[in-house]
């Protein structure tokens, strides 16, 4: 049976309080089958029947407590505001992918063009314009295939203290030199 407070002894409550707890437990379906049968037999007693009727009425009043629904204008305003926010967030989430793809596509043209330009002005060794074009195409289509923007490589395998230690060692080696 349900109690208003588990720490309270049920015997410390008045008879009417105990009856109320019993009725509420019955209405909440918290009684065992035996307790339910016993309570239903007790419903013939006028005091129990009265308590039961009062509990039912109070529940009905509370369940139908006005207002039934929020104002339509409010719901419409909430829908308009939130749906606009959702659309905006969705658009913003899609943007980096699109921007990365467009930028990559532009490099498909600019990369080889610059390589050709450089080859024409210097005698240094350069990769073939075709290879440059293909590699930029990979960058262009990569974000679309991966389903997200190009992210900086993160060295997650090494904890921060190991990275700090390595940095310190490098600095020390440089100073030693």
């Amino acid at each position: 049976m349900r109690r208003p407070d588990e720490s309270n002894d049920l015997n410390a409550l008045s008879e009417s309080e105990q009856l109320e707890i019993l009725v509420e437990s019955y209405l909440d379906g918290l009684l065992s089958p035996e307790e339910t049968a016993l309570f239903e037999r007790r419903l013939l007693e006028p005091a129990v029947a009265e308590a039961f009727r009062e509990a039912l009425m109070l529940r009905a009043l509370l369940a139908n407590m006005p207002p039934d629904q929020p104002p339509q204008e409010l719901v419409a305003a909430l829908e308009a505001a939130l749906v606009a926010d959702v659309r905006l967030a969705r658009k913003a989430a899609r943007m980096p992918r699109l921007r990365a793809a467009l930028s990559g596509m532009s490099w498909m043209v600019r990369g080889p063009a610059q390589a050709i330009g450089a080859a024409g002005t210097s005698s240094g060794e350069l990769g073939s314009p075709l290879r440059d074009g293909l590699s930029t195409m990979r960058y262009a289509l990569g974000p679309l295939a991966a389903g997200g923007g190009v992210r900086a490589k993160q060295d997650r395998a090494r904890p921060w203290w190991r990275r700090a230690l390595a940095r310190g060692l490098r600095r020390k080696a440089k100073e030693g030199r």
Binding site: M65, Q69, P70, V75, E79, L82, V86, A89
Partner: peptide, 22 residues
């Protein structure tokens, strides 16, 4: 980010929010 789902969520939860707030 389905706008229709957000609409349903508002219609489903706004009575609770409004009545408790009121």
């Amino acid at each position: 980010g389905d706008p229709e789902a957000w609409r349903i969520l508002i219609r489903r939860c706004s009575p609770l929010v409004y009545r408790v707030a009121l």
